[in-house]
């Protein structure tokens, strides 16, 4: 059965789009039919991270308003044939989205795909609420710092009240994905630790993605990090997270501080 998963956070810049692309690619690599949908109308980025920005003809707004048919707007990934992108419009804004129109598009996507990943815009306004509106599951992307955690708490409250599932009295299955986790800073006590975050959010953990240059490099070449360098630490963390989404039991790895050979030899701490 098709699953609608919203990747959301409340706060901007925490890694929603990166995580949507990475999880979408990881799910597709394991054979699932996946579409990633960009809900950030007016500030679209998912097309860049997916490396499809030069192939956008029609977008989500066109489909919502009935100007284009869904197959016309869907863009197939060049690397994985079962990974698709439904881009957002860059020229419009979030007011162009309607509840009814989004519902129709999601229903149509559900008949074609196993996973529909909705990349939510930041904030708690129309774009964000419509991105989560039809979700069955939610990945709440959180950085280990207080403002991000509090915004995540707010978003969890909205997932429990503003979604179709919540209104029917059902639950949206929620997962916390901690991104930009820096083991060195965590060791120095400069970041919120994992246990504190989970205690505040009272929501199960999906994975911990370490802060890494690999994420930035992958974004710059327009490839999801899980495809760009599947052996890198963040890629492995995303792949583990995607397996947990599919119901597998995967042991949680807390990223540890990696010391270089010379550092270890000299007993230096990596800064």
């Amino acid at each position: 059965m098709a699953k609608v998963l919203v990747v959301t956070s409340g706060k901007g810049g925490v890694g929603k789009t990166t995580s949507t692309a990475a999880l979408g690619a990881a799910l597709a690599q394991s054979g699932q039919n996946v579409v990633v949908v960009d809900f950030d109308v007016g500030l679209r980025n998912l097309d860049l991270v997916m490396g499809a920005e030069r192939r956008v003809v029609f977008d989500l707004i066109n489909v919502v308003q009935g100007v284009a048919k869904l197959p016309q707007a869907l863009i197939r990934d060049k690397r994985l044939e079962n990974l698709w992108l439904l881009p957002a419009s860059q020229t419009r804004d979030k007011d162009a989205l309607t509840d009814e129109g989004v519902g129709r598009v999601i229903a149509e996507l559900k008949s074609r795909f196993d996973w529909i990943l909705c990349d939510s815009p930041a904030g708690i306004e129309r774009g964000a609420t419509l991105a989560m509106r039809y979700a069955d599951e939610a990945v709440i992307v959180t950085n280990p710092e207080v403002s991000s955690v509090r915004d995540s708490d707010r978003i969890i409250g909205m997932l429990d009240s503003k979604t179709v599932r919540a209104e029917r009295g059902e639950r949206v299955e929620k997962h916390v994905l901690i991104t930009r986790y820096d083991p060195a800073r965590a060791a120095r006590g400069e970041m919120l630790n994992i246990d504190d975050i989970l205690e505040i959010l009272a929501t199960p953990l999906l994975g911990i993605i370490p802060e890494s240059q690999d994420v930035l490099k992958a974004s710059n070449v327009g490839t999801p990090v899980t495809l760009n360098n599947a052996e890198s630490a963040p890629a492995r963390a995303y792949i583990d997270a995607s397996r947990r989404l599919m119901g597998e039991e995967v042991a949680m790895v807390v990223p540890a501080e990696r010391k270089g050979f010379m550092d270890r030899l000299l007993g230096r701490r990596a800064a």
């Binding site: 207080v146 708490d153 707010r154 009272a202």
Partner: peptide, 22 residues
């Protein structure tokens, strides 16, 4: 959760869980 406001003028409120910042 953060941002939620529970108003109950008629009496006591009991919460089985935490009350988030905000």
């Amino acid at each position: 959760r953060s941002g939620q406001s529970i108003v109950f003028m008629e009496g006591d409120v009991t919460v089985l869980g935490s009350v988030g910042s905000g």
